[in-house]
Amino acid sequence: MAFFIETLIGGLMAGMLYSLVALGFVLIFKASGVFNFAQGALVLFAALAMARFAEWLPAWFGIESLALANVLAFLITIAIMFVAALLIERLVLRYLVNQEGATLLMATLGIAYFLEGFGQTVFGSDIYKIDVGMPKDPVLILENVFEGGILINKEDFIAAVIAATLVTLLTLFFQKTATGRALRAVADDHQAAQSIGIPLNRIWVIVWCVAGVVALVAGIIWGSKLGVQFSLATVALRALPVVILGGLTSVPGAIIGGLIIGVGEKLSEVYLGPSIGGGIEIWFAYVLALVFLLFRPQGLFGEKIIDRV
C-alpha cells in the first residue's frame, strides 16, 4: 500500500509539472488559435539563458552571492524572453494573420528548430547547472503508519507547489482580467476581435511573453532537477498527451489532464511495465490520451465545436 501511495504521489507531482508546460500550449492556443510546437524549445532556450547568465554574471562582475546572481539572471532571461516574443510576432506571426491552423503550426515548428539551434550556438550544448537551492534529499513521512514510511522527494514537492501557484495565477489572469478576456476573444475569431478594437498584434506579443515566462519557470524547475541540456526540449513535449487529453482550450483541462497523465504513466510503468518489458511510460501516456479521445474527441474539457453545413 505504501508503495502504491508513493507511486501515486510521484505521479501527481510529475503531473503538476506537465500541467505547467501544457498551460503554455493552452495559453497560446486560446489566444491565437496556434498550436505552439515551439513550447519545448522555449523551455530549453529560457533554461539555457538562465543557467549561463547565472554562471557568467559572477565571473564578469565579481558577484559572490548565488541568490543575487540567480535573481539577475532571472530578470535578464525574462527580458530575453520578452524580446523573443516580440521578434516572433514581428517576424513570423504578423504575416500569418487569418491563415490556416496548419500554416501557423508549421511556423511554430520552424521557430522550435531555430530556437533549439540558436540557443545551443549562443549558450553551448553542454550540461549546465541551475542551482536555486532546491533540496535534493528525500524525506520519509508516516513512518508509524506504513513500514518504511512513505518517501517524498522534497524537490519534486516544492516544484509541484510552484507549478500549482503559477497555474492558479494564470487561471485567474485568464478569467478575471480585461487582457485575459481580450485574449479569449482573439482566440474565438481574429477578425471579430479586431473589429471591436482589440489590438491583435499586441495581444499576440502578450501571450508569447506569458508563454515565455511559463517556459522559464518550467525550465528552472526541470533544469534544477535534470541539468540544463538539449533533452529539456523533449521533456516539454511530454505535455502533448496532456493537451490531447485535457483539451486545447481549457485551463482546468491542462491541470486535470496533467495529473491524470502523470499518475497514469507512473502506475503503468510500475505495475504493467514488468509484464510487458518495461520502458512503457512515454508511449503509454499517448495510449491513455487516445483512449480518452475515443469517448470525448474534444478532450476532457475542450469546447465541442459544431459547424453548420
Partner: peptide, 21 residues
C-alpha cells in the same frame, strides 16, 4: 532485475521507485 529507460533517459521516477521497493 531488468529496468529499461526510454530515450533520452530523463524520466526515471518510476524506475527508481521500483528500485526503492
Amino acid at each position: 532485475m531488468l529496468l529499461p529507460v526510454a530515450h533520452p533517459g530523463v524520466e526515471q521516477k518510476a524506475t527508481w521507485l521500483q528500485i526503492r521497493q
